[in-house]
Design a binder for these strands. Sequence first.
DNA 1: ACTATTGTTATAGTGAACTATAACAATATT
DNA 2: AATATTGTTATAGTTCACTATAACAATAGT
Lengths: 141, 141
Amino acid sequence: MNYNNITIDHLRVGVVVLVSIDSKSGVPFYRQIIEQVKFAIARGDLEPGDRLPTVRQLAVDLSINLNTVIRGYRELEIEGVIETQQGSGTFVGRKRPKIDDLERQRMLNQILTELLARASDYGFTLDEVLQGLSQRKEKSS
Amino acid sequence: MNYNNITIDHLRVGVVVLVSIDSKSGVPFYRQIIEQVKFAIARGDLEPGDRLPTVRQLAVDLSINLNTVIRGYRELEIEGVIETQQGSGTFVGRKRPKIDDLERQRMLNQILTELLARASDYGFTLDEVLQGLSQRKEKSS
DNA sequence: ACTATTGTTATAGTGAACTATAACAATATT
DNA sequence: AATATTGTTATAGTTCACTATAACAATAGT
């Protein structure tokens, strides 16, 4: 699929874009898969127990090689994000890290600070960041 | 330099971060140089006639190879963003670099995707991230 | 039981990015 | 004029991401 010179292959599950690959971004495909699966979980589009696309199906849909998908899935499994069952499929894991509220808050603040620092390096304003995030929320609903 | 497992080599000119390389992002070094020089100009941190770091100096400061710097500079010159003078140096050209909306969009998307992937690692949802950011906006106004 | 579907493993090849190193060419400095 | 500094060019080798292809292994469905 082609949007204004940005080539994006994607896979929709229902109405939701699960994984999309930007072949011009310079970011390795398998990494894009990893990030976007995590992102989908953060968004709530994927919940524990949900089934992911089969490795072959995703390879076809994204027009990439089977091994590249496997590589992404494997790293996700190593990180404990997903669980694979040979013969049956790949599923979102049940793992949820336990952190107390204070530590959680601190962690979130740190992540946000780094984000804003980077965004500002590139000349983005807080409003633009907020808007970009809001759009992602809309897409998923 | 090391911030929470994110390795960032950077070069400051004055107080401003001119070019920083994230070796874990997967984005080729020479591309990061190109992008960041363009954004520095767009931001106003670099103005027409300003001198850029020498190829050798930048290579040393970023701990990358001379040829990689040259590759980035060369593309910037081809695009007309900078002008090189053998023997004297590399300078910002008079022409303003076009950072089209697509490129900006891509950059923001990349930053947001990374953020959300990390947030997901710590069990944060998109909503929590949005809420955290909104609070920062209130504070700043 | 058989078959289809799922994930797994293995091998081999290609191209891009990066590195190391050396020599060359133009300009600035002394 | 001589030297240092700047960008340029060239060669060669390494690593990584990706592809193509094939066979294997476990599970689900019939």
